[in-house]
Computed example of a mutant assay.
Amino acid sequence: MRGTAISPSNHWHLHTQNSPIKQIDRTINLNPVVQFNKTQNPSNGRHPPLSFAINPSKTQTPITPNPGTSPPLVVFGSANADIYLEIERLPEEGETISAKTGQTLAGGKGANQAACGGKLSYPTYFLGQVGEDAHGKLIIEALENGAVRLDYLNTVAAAPTGHAVVMLQSDGQNSIIIVGGANMNCWPETISEEALEVVKNAGIILLQREIPDSVNIQVAKAARSAGVPVILDAGGMDAPFPQELLNFIDIFCPNESELSRLTGSPTESFELITQAVGKCHKMGVKQVLVKLGAKGSALFVEGEEPIKQPAISAAKVIDTTGAGDTFTAAFAVALVEGKSKKECLEFAAAAASLCVQVKGAIPSMPDRKSVLDLLHSQVTDLRHK
């Protein structure tokens, strides 16, 4: 399986043409339509990503992309309206309890990860589906406000926007029930060539399992054919992973429980996690990034020693919703910017730490300056100890 090292010397060129793109239930004239080849890539008018040094005492080659040269993060996935209910505890069977508050916010694993990429000032595309309803408008507005490109987002008439009921407990932990809606229905049998062209010219692809496996497989195959690395977040449907999908991904990213379900192995200790990851390697996945919650994370590359990353403590945990998506997206952004694997883990840990301190998924995604400031403070604290 191809590795995921990204060369910062790759350049991309933007071509435009005035032509309609027919989507599932509508035709949109994009003026201009964005297409790419591998000589330069658009920055969408945003500031280029900032370089960062986790440990300034070490000699590093700083990577400072010029405007217009950063290959985009492309997220193909789900978008949900998250209906938040704040409760003291989960109800017992047959019990009715009252929620302290309730509100609806934009979310969904795909939209969360795209929003994180946008808030980290990295050029990001989101490709998915919403319904022709108020929830769809809510998601579109949230992503546009986060500077995410939605050129290939489909609006479908035959299914409502996906939504989720998030039961947020007083300790910040949550339980979630998802209704797939447009995320799981009305997809075309074959993904459009225009959408796959964006995939083939990306810097990195993020997938999750809140859309049909058949869609993910098409996207992963297109990415592999173009040499674009793919990260598959294991979150979503609780069903066996198709081997065909695993064959075309570069980094598999589960949490402990998802890793246990996939492999049928316990994950109560690091030794057991390592054994479970070994089963993933046998399935053909060479790199496994395991999210361990409060215990941090670890990246397992087949044939190498695992890289451990402790969690960065949060001042106060308000809401863990979206923390895993923040971690995955931040890792992807650092990776496509050419950071070392250790730096990617540190950057992702800092982003996730900031995420859990704010309620909501997309509203809690941190900006790049906040992440860099936290990393700097961590280095400063270590030096003073």
Results as ranks from 00 to 15, higher is better:
residue 158 A to M: 02
residue 351 A to Q: 09
residue 212 P to Q: 01
residue 103 Q to L: 12
residue 47 H to M: 12
residue 272 L to D: 14
residue 188 P to A: 00
residue 100 K to E: 10
residue 115 A to H: 10
residue 293 G to D: 08
residue 2 R to V: 12
residue 337 E to V: 00
residue 37 N to L: 03
residue 305 E to T: 13
residue 317 V to C: 10
residue 48 P to R: 04
residue 380 T to Y: 13
residue 107 G to V: 06
residue 365 M to D: 06
residue 189 E to V: 00
residue 343 E to T: 08
residue 122 Y to G: 04
residue 248 F to V: 14
residue 228 V to F: 06
residue 184 M to N: 11
residue 379 V to Y: 15
residue 142 A to D: 04
residue 316 K to C: 09
residue 1 M to E: 14
residue 376 H to A: 11
residue 197 E to L: 03
residue 56 P to D: 09
residue 281 H to L: 04
residue 160 P to Q: 14
residue 289 L to W: 05
residue 286 K to Y: 11
residue 129 Q to K: 12
residue 312 I to N: 01
residue 213 D to N: 12
residue 239 A to L: 12
residue 64 T to A: 06
residue 150 L to H: 05
residue 239 A to W: 04
residue 316 K to Y: 09
residue 217 I to V: 15
residue 302 E to Y: 05
residue 227 G to P: 04
residue 91 P to H: 00
residue 167 M to N: 14
residue 310 P to W: 04
residue 356 V to G: 01
residue 278 G to A: 01
residue 185 N to E: 15
residue 71 P to D: 08
residue 326 T to N: 08
residue 309 Q to A: 02
residue 75 V to P: 14
residue 111 A to P: 09
residue 199 V to Y: 05
residue 240 P to C: 09
residue 364 S to M: 02
residue 266 P to N: 06
residue 59 T to L: 14
residue 299 L to T: 07
residue 315 A to G: 03
residue 341 K to F: 15
residue 140 I to T: 14
residue 356 V to D: 03
residue 166 V to S: 05
residue 246 L to V: 10
residue 53 A to I: 13
residue 160 P to M: 11
residue 117 G to T: 13
residue 203 G to K: 02
residue 73 L to G: 09
residue 228 V to C: 06
residue 143 L to D: 10
residue 168 L to G: 00
residue 327 F to P: 01
residue 70 S to I: 15
residue 155 T to N: 06
residue 297 S to F: 08
residue 133 D to E: 11
residue 89 R to L: 00
residue 143 L to T: 05
residue 361 A to V: 04
residue 130 V to N: 06
residue 338 G to A: 01
residue 83 I to W: 08
residue 258 E to G: 03
residue 24 I to S: 09
residue 148 V to Q: 04
residue 254 P to W: 07
residue 46 R to P: 01
